[in-house]
Computed example of a mutant assay.
Amino acid sequence: MYQPLSETDVHKIHAAALEVLARVGFKPPTETVRNPVLSASPSTEFRPLTIADLYDLARLCDTLPNIQWFARPVVATDIEDWRELDLNTVYAIAKGTRKHLGTSIVLGKHLSEIIAEVARTENLYPELADRDSPDRWKDKGSMDIRDRAARRVQDIIRTHHPDNRTPEADATVRARFPIRLPCSETDRLTSRWST
């Protein structure tokens, strides 16, 4: 495991941090900062943040077009086990947003497990990326990224039909506007791409 500092160095840094806090202190937020924050909340007390709060923040970020990526803004305090905190943090962020994500990991030894189990998504490991050995690549037909991309486009066109509008809402829109896209093309069973 990578460990750039010795135990002695870690203890020196910790002691120096405690000395700075003892001399300088920690100042709570001023009324100018505290009052607007408290008045914006139905509760006048701060509460510990949870993994559900982190998930909600990721979902909120997912809807904001001017934000391109999500980095963990809070630490969930409802999970004490560091491994579980790392796993749940990445899961909550990846589940809550399709945007690029960033977070810190408490212990580096959790990283491989997180990548292998929780964070394996299109955002982190695009399916078009080729991670095969050269021999396996040849055995699979030697497709380059253009070939894989073309095949993936065909798969998406054939199988992906969002159902983000009810049939009733669609009928209302079609009755009001001159929609030229045939209903048969938006139906996964009757589109020209269905198999």
Score class of each variant (00 low, 15 high):
55 Y>F: 09
70 F>K: 03
47 R>G: 00
153 V>A: 12
164 N>V: 01
108 G>T: 06
75 V>L: 12
85 L>Q: 09
183 C>P: 02
60 L>E: 08
135 D>H: 12
118 V>R: 00
188 R>K: 08
104 S>L: 14
156 I>T: 07
74 V>M: 13
69 W>R: 03
151 R>T: 01
137 W>N: 10
173 V>M: 12
168 E>H: 03
46 F>C: 01
157 I>Q: 11
137 W>V: 09
28 P>I: 01
102 G>R: 04
144 D>E: 10
105 I>W: 09
13 I>Y: 14
83 R>L: 13
40 A>M: 13
75 V>Y: 02
97 T>N: 05
29 P>H: 08
100 H>R: 05
27 K>S: 14
14 H>C: 00
134 P>S: 12
48 P>N: 12
22 A>L: 02
86 D>W: 03
81 D>P: 01
101 L>N: 08
57 L>T: 01
49 L>E: 10
117 E>Y: 06
79 I>E: 10
37 V>F: 11
3 Q>P: 00
121 T>S: 15
147 D>F: 02
64 L>W: 07
37 V>D: 00
76 A>Q: 05
86 D>A: 11
76 A>P: 10
18 L>F: 00
139 D>K: 15
18 L>D: 13
49 L>Q: 11
159 T>E: 09
130 D>W: 07
63 T>G: 06
80 E>T: 10
73 P>R: 07
64 L>R: 14
